[in-house]
């Protein structure tokens, strides 16, 4: 989980997609990771009905986890004490 300061705070570089902020390069990376693993898992499965799909689903989850580890969320979290405001 060492993704605190991988990328320098490169100013204003994020755009909004679907109500939250993303970095374009990271988004492309995540889409590629997820699609390749999902489709790859689907294709290598034996060709008996539910198996490719279940494989693909597992692949999707793996892709999701890998993306989550590689990419840092574009949010900062600050805890405020209760007395504030």
């Amino acid at each position: 989980m060492n993704k605190k300061q991988i990328r320098p705070q490169d100013g204003e570089n994020n755009i909004e997609v679907w109500e939250d902020l993303v970095h374009i390069k990271d988004l492309v990376l995540s889409i590629v990771i997820c699609t390749v693993i999902t489709l790859g898992a689907y294709l290598i499965a034996p060709n008996e009905p539910p198996k490719p799909l279940i494989n693909g689903l597992i692949g999707a989850v793996i892709g999701f986890v890998i993306s989550s580890i590689v990419i840092k969320p574009k949010r900062t979290l600050r805890f405020a004490e209760e007395r504030e405001e």
């Binding site: 990271d26 988004l27 995540s30 889409i31 699609t35 989850v61 993306s67 989550s68 840092k72 574009k74």
Partner: peptide, 10 residues
């Protein structure tokens, strides 16, 4: 810990 990019990718 959950980047928005990963959700979109999924």
């Amino acid at each position: 810990y959950v980047p928005h990019e990963a959700m979109l990718g999924l």
